[in-house]
Design a protein around this nucleic acid. Structure first.
Lengths: 138, 138
DNA sequence: GTAGGAGTTAAACAAATGTTGAAGTCAAGG
DNA sequence: CCTTGACTTCAACATTTGTTTAACTCCTAC
């Protein structure tokens, strides 16, 4: 019934902000920014330092992909709203996110192609008016 | 040898900023912004008012599509740098732009899919570690 | 115990893409 | 002539997505 999680450190939050930054190629300031906006989650040490779960590496990478798709921070937060607790995330959860992103890409791509079609099919815009000739007059 | 242009007003610039705004669904302030950044071009009346060529309607629509593709103002300016004078624009020119945009979309889409593939194939990230089980334990 | 390196917060700054507002100009109608 | 509506410019403001900086804390090593 249970689904295995992806923990590698006994499920403890062990990554520092700079470790996570290095793994993801994202600046620490950006990671703190994402945390402030509740895209990223961390525990705190006794000395008030952040410690991230391993899963956060994938979270951050997904954030960057989602941004390239065109999602805002708020939309990415929505996208991830249904994730379970960090220690309980499984491969299935990543796959769900991936499918959601792919579906978003497809939708945007379709809208984009429709817009491009409009551009070149709109009579008043880009078609040759009836009386003029295109590539005429050898 | 020559290619017919798309002029409808004797090739004169006749559109006011609010007419162009209405035709394109873009705010006048945005159109002035685009002009300041040399994406959009206009003539001036004796009284210093802008007058746009018909072609500008398509230009503005292309700008909006290009933004959705993810191009910045500077990149869009580059994209349009090779256009001829406004009065000499032909259907061919729109088609060239369209193909350039489509090609850009394809490139970005491919990079995006590669990134998504990375996400779910990266061993350290999203694969189940060898010792744990996925959806096991009936 | 003290010096260094890494972390912390809050606030200021930055770049991109516009929007809004104030103050002025112009042309048309009454 | 005078009002009205659409235009002009310029500057200030707004939003998003971060980065930079200053002042402070914490842990480790000497």
């Amino acid at each position: 019934m249970t689904t295995a999680t992806l923990a590698r450190n006994g499920g403890q939050a062990t990554l520092t902000v700079s470790e996570l930054a290095h793994r993801t190629g994202v600046a620490p300031s950006a990671i703190r920014f994402y945390e402030k906006h509740r895209l990223v989650v961390s525990e705190r040490t006794a000395g008030n330092q952040r410690r991230f779960y391993e899963a956060e590496e994938c979270i951050v990478k997904i954030i960057r992909v989602a941004q390239r798709v065109g999602l805002s921070i708020a939309e990415i937060r929505e996208l991830m709203a249904d994730l379970p607790e960090r220690r309980r995330i499984t491969v299935d959860d990543w796959c769900v996110l991936r499918r959601a992103l792919e579906s978003e890409v497809r939708a945007r791509l379709q809208a984009l192609h429709a817009a491009l079609d409009d551009l070149t099919s709109d009579q008043r815009l880009c078609e040759i008016p009836p009386t003029t000739t295109h590539r005429a007059r050898h």
